[in-house]
């Protein structure tokens, strides 16, 4: 069971048996400390800081809603929102479509399954690393591997990383390249579908495509939903690749200025900590809204077989 189904199932199950509060508290002590000192405390503090002007050196000065009115007129922020939304809305559907497509090809005792699965999964393990971002810089540079390949078929490609029109595209390709982990989740989901459903369907004369539409797809919707929620949350926070590819600037011409990169520049480049906190909460609200919409919309398309 995945985290999303787990959250859904939390409604309506009560504590049974006698409570063992003392033992539980001791086992949970590190987690409680972490929750309050490392997570909830700083969350509250950053909410407070978002209403202040704070640069680490002088004490925070209350500035009311200044940071939030500044959000409205901050053009680099608007650019970073545009970049991030484009990135999320283009790369996540592509990534999940590839993941699902290949999982379907790989299903059902295919010869060489283990090899294919490894080949597709490896990139998602290393896709977030600096080394791969460096590799991307090399591959999509003006005389990089990609253009060498294009030259073989007579196309003279641009410097993909250094052109404002194509730089974000290379990062989208990088995220799509890491479709392996949702693919493995799809594979696990496909294996959960009882074979007898297919047997029953084929006894009833259902074609392969009909079986896919009426058996596979409905039973896979919880997994699609889970992957969608997770990959969207993940993509909104992308940072490393844009940072390395653009040497921390978000360039060229702010075309790879991911939201989290802009937040980093404000907070840890300019030490504009109050504003960075406001940006952090804005990001939380955006991700929260996306997740809430996802959960709400799931009523209409996600099928739970229980």
């Amino acid at each position: 069971m995945s985290a999303t189904t787990e959250l859904r199932a939390l409604r309506g199950r009560g504590v049974t048996g006698k409570p063992e509060n003392k033992a539980a508290f001791l086992f949970l002590l590190p987690w409680f400390l972490g929750l309050f000192v490392i997570t909830l405390g700083p969350m509250a503090a950053s909410l407070f800081l978002s209403f202040t002007d704070y640069n680490l050196l002088q004490p925070a000065r209350f500035s009311g809603l200044d940071n939030f009115t500044r959000v409205l007129g901050d053009e680099r922020l608007h650019q970073s929102l545009k970049v991030t939304f484009t990135y999320v809305l283009v790369s996540v559907p592509l990534q999940l479509a590839l993941a699902l497509g290949l999982a379907l090809l790989l299903d059902r005792g295919l010869r060489g399954l283990a090899f294919y699965r490894s080949a597709f999964y490896l990139p998602s393990l290393i896709g977030g690393s600096v080394a791969i971002a460096v590799l991307w810089r090399t591959v999509f540079g003006a005389d990089g591997l990609f253009n060498q390949g294009l030259a073989l078929i007579g196309i003279d490609g641009p410097g993909w990383i250094s052109e404002p029109g194509t730089a974000l595209g290379t990062l989208i390709v990088l995220n799509v390249w890491t479709f392996g982990s949702p693919m493995v989740i799809f594979l696990a989901g496909l294996r959960q579908i009882p074979r007898m459903y297919y047997e029953a369907a084929s006894v009833d004369g259902a074609s392969r495509s009909r079986q896919f539409r009426s058996v596979t797809l409905p039973l896979l919707t919880p997994i699609i939903f889970f992957n969608l929620v997770l990959q969207i949350i993940h993509a909104f926070q992308s940072f490393t690749q844009a940072f390395v590819v653009s040497s921390g600037t978000g360039g060229p011409a702010d075309s790879t200025l991911f939201y989290s990169l802009y937040l980093y520049q404000r907070g840890f480049g300019a030490f504009d900590m109050g504003y960075a906190s406001a940006l952090a909460w804005l990001l939380l609200l955006i991700i929260g809204a996306f997740t809430a919409i996802n959960f709400w919309a799931s009523k209409y398309w996600v099928f739970y077989d229980d």
């Binding site: 985290a3 787990e6 959250l7 939390l10 929750l35 490392i38 997570t39 405390g41 700083p42 969350m43 503090a45 950053s46 800081l49 680490l56 929620v229 997770l230 949350i233 909104f236 926070q237 989290s260 937040l263 907070g267 840890f268 900590m273 960075a276 906190s277 940006l279 952090a280 909460w281 990001l283 939380l284 991700i287 997740t291």
Partner: peptide, 18 residues
């Protein structure tokens, strides 16, 4: 479960201060 999905950015500034 919710903290699994919490973006690190929301806590990084005060955590850094701390």
């Amino acid at each position: 479960l919710v903290t699994i999905m919490l973006p690190v950015h929301v806590i990084i500034v005060p955590q850094y201060v701390l």
